[in-house]
């Protein structure tokens, strides 16, 4: 059993996070007891952040007090684990689809560090009133303008803050070679962001890559 990051453990089976809401599950995950604390198994096939960690993510820019803007929270699988980690932090979750938000509400209401926002990440002015300056923007939206969306939301991020971006090649162009698509999207970010890590998470999610960077 190894402590990877605050509130994140790893054993020979995989990774897990310390359950913020003891005794509850979010998506049917397994609960484990470690030294009297309850942990939730973090499935890399369902959470892209988990797959990035499994693929050797060097630094996880999420601490106990972190303020996070999460674009594309869907039904809250990854959000719940970030919520486990940032126990005293704040996670602002933007999701576009009412159907997903419907399922997400149970997660948002049971965890005091989550703020749900039903809105379009392409138009951040819509939800700007609810936001404050954040330490990290985590984005996982399957959209053509993935890079543009991140850049449009960048004003919410503090200087020196981090970004974590999941790039889905098929969402951008279903016909082109994924590697070319990744490189092009990443280059769009370089004008404002220093890229610190690029991980290939295709082992867990086909034609996906994970990018970590710092805002200049």
């Amino acid at each position: 059993m190894k402590r990877l990051f605050p509130n994140v453990l790893m054993d020979d089976q995989g990774i897990m996070t310390r359950n913020l809401v003891r005794g509850t599950r979010v998506y049917g995950e397994k609960l484990l007891d470690v030294d009297g604390e309850e942990y939730r198994v973090w499935n890399p096939f369902r959470s892209k952040l988990a797959s990035a960690i499994m693929e050797g993510l060097k630094e996880l820019p999420i601490g106990k007090d972190s303020k996070v803007l999460y674009l594309g929270s869907a039904t809250g699988t990854t959000v719940s684990h970030i919520s486990d980690i940032a126990t005293d932090g704040r996670i602002y979750c933007v999701e576009f689809a009412p159907r997903s938000m419907r399922d997400f509400m149970a997660v948002a209401e049971s965890r005091q560090n989550i703020v749900p926002i039903l809105g379009n990440a392409k138009d951040p002015q819509q939800y700007a009133a609810f936001l404050e300056e954040v330490d990290l923007i985590y984005q996982d939206v399957a959209q053509v303008e993935q890079a543009e969306i991140l850049l449009r939301n960048l004003p919410f991020l503090k200087t020196g803050g981090n970004i974590m971006l999941c790039i889905k090649a098929r969402s951008i162009d279903v016909t082109r070679d994924p590697d070319k698509v990744f490189r092009e999207e990443v280059s769009k970010l370089r004008q404002k962001i220093d890229i610190t890590e690029t991980l290939d998470i295709s082992a867990y999610e086909k034609d996906h890559s994970f990018v970590v960077g710092i805002k200049r």
Binding site: M101, M105, A108, I114, V115, P116, L118, F130
Partner: peptide, 8 residues
């Protein structure tokens, strides 16, 4: 947060 939840 409560206002956000109610809005959603």
């Amino acid at each position: 947060r409560g206002v956000a939840i109610e809005l959603v």
